[in-house]
Amino acid sequence: MTFTNFTKANNVYKHLELESPSSPKMVLKNPAKSEHYQNREPKTNTSIINGLNRGRVAIFIDGVNLFHAALQLGIEIDYLKLLCRLTSGSRLLRAFFYTIVDVGRPAPTRPRANDKQQGFLFWMRRNGYRVVTKEAQPTDNSKKPNLNVEIAVDMITLAPYYDTAILVSGDGALAYAVEAVTSKGGRVEVVSLRPMTSDSLIDVADYFLDLDSIKQEIQKDSHLGYNYRSLSNSHL
């Protein structure tokens, strides 16, 4: 995994080989639409990525979406493994991790709100990720916040500097940003859990990868744990 600076080189993508009849197909939520989807959905054979000249890649991870996907899969994500798997030997420009942070009122027994989460984010910053956060008060009546605007802006702003964007999210609200990137010649790969992924997002992506197909490669070993530092003893 190699980090590169903001200088985009000319890149010519290798054409994808035609899919053979034996190639695996995506599991569809509505079998009645299978013929229509086979004609328009991106291929999901994971071997394709390994043989593709993806140029410089930028990774955009919707942390909340990925967290819920991991819960559905019953795994805990190893974020170093995830970074390596998504990069797949390509040149990495940036890897962004977007998440909501708890800013609930500190308690006497917890002087810092959600210290465990802050320790995790500190670890992420020290291990190859650019962390983007949005504060939220944990209330029952307020609409759940998201970072779709931040993700979309970063994808479009950085588009001149990368060749391939890897979007880890299934939120259909990001389809317009994906289309904006692809319309300018960029390639976009969407990585998410299929039942949690909007069809509109798959429609505009060049490639879709189901997290279920790579869960063995990105889950944390049960006997290992992250060595998160407590922020009370750390200097940011």
Rank of each mutant, 00 (worst) to 15 (best):
S213A: 12
I202T: 06
T197D: 00
K220M: 15
V191D: 02
G55D: 05
S34M: 09
A95H: 09
A70H: 10
L66M: 11
I77K: 03
N114K: 11
A32K: 14
F122W: 13
N227F: 04
T44L: 06
D212M: 02
T2W: 07
E19K: 14
E189K: 05
I156G: 00
Q72R: 12
R187E: 12
D102N: 15
I166H: 00
S213Y: 01
K134M: 12
S213N: 08
A136E: 03
Y37W: 13
L66W: 12
T197Q: 03
F122Y: 15
I166A: 01
P145I: 09
I218W: 14
V178A: 02
E189L: 14
Q38F: 02
E135A: 15
P145L: 11
L83G: 02
G186D: 06
S222F: 10
Y207N: 05
Q219F: 06
Y37L: 11
R54Y: 11
R130E: 15
Y98W: 02
G63Q: 00
I48F: 07
D154A: 04
Q38L: 14
N65D: 05
Y13P: 05
R112M: 05
E19T: 14
N50D: 13
I218Q: 07
P138G: 02
A70E: 13
Y79R: 00
K8P: 00
A136L: 03
N127P: 09
I59F: 13
G170N: 06
A205Q: 08
V153G: 10
V191W: 14
R112Y: 14
D140M: 04
R194P: 04
N30F: 15
V191S: 07
V27M: 03
S200H: 10
Y98C: 01
F208T: 00
V64E: 03
E17S: 10
N146M: 06
S23N: 08
M124W: 05
D221R: 06
R125N: 13
A69Q: 06
F97T: 06
Y228F: 13
F97P: 11
L16A: 12
M26Y: 01
D171T: 01
T4N: 01
T197L: 00
T164H: 04
R112I: 15
I214L: 04
A177M: 01
A32E: 15
P31G: 02
L73V: 02
V181E: 03
A205Y: 03
F208G: 01
G55W: 07
Y37A: 14
D62G: 01
G170L: 06
P195T: 00
L209A: 08
Q72H: 09
F3P: 01
L201M: 06
L209M: 14
Y98K: 01
G185N: 12
F60S: 01
I48K: 08
D140I: 13
N65P: 02
E19N: 01
Y176S: 15
E35Y: 08
R194L: 12
N227C: 10
I100D: 04
I49K: 12
